[in-house]
Amino acid sequence: MSSRELILGRVRAALRDGPAPGPAPRDYRRSFPSADLDVLVDRLVDYKATVRRITEDAVAAVAAEIAGGTIVVPEGLPSDWRPSDVLVDEGDPGLAPDRIAGAAAVLTAAAVAVAETGTIVLDASPDQGRRIITLLPDVHIVVLRPGQVVASVPEAVARLDPARPLTWISGPSATSDIELNRVEGVHGPRNLHILLLES
């Protein structure tokens, strides 16, 4: 007998008393007023991200100023967001890891943001690129449109496509492993900048 059959057999035998599936109550908060951008900004800043509220035509200049050097961008990033000094990752095959790691920053869009938790979600769409490009540089600059911001986690889950690789980001990389002191910045980008576009 294969281990698969063995395990499934054991599990079925364990459930011989026929326990009914517990109810899955959905009476927790699931509907929300429209997202409050000020709440999002407050939560992002609380988690040590830097937030700027700018107009769309200023993205390239502001990103260049934050990075102060070469910026990695995904192939699908809107062309008018691109600063002059960029390395374009064309996906498969894309930039070598050491070129990505050597850049001053990475600039991407996002899929969804959650105001209540200060979370940005990337789904590897063409304007966000492969997961590796947002991981190796020390500075991550995210451009966020107001329409992408939802109030709560349930709304974000409903908007996302589980078939895509998803990265949920709430502030920069952090650890509390040494005497429970919070240290911002371990392996991921140590600096997270959000450019929130004016509607």
């Binding site: 938790t117 998803l166 990265t167 709430s170």
Partner: peptide, 13 residues
């Protein structure tokens, strides 16, 4: 409110 990073993946992309 939320941990810094959560990764979700489905098979191979």
């Amino acid at each position: 409110r939320m941990n810094p990073y959560t990764t979700m993946w489905t098979g191979v992309t």
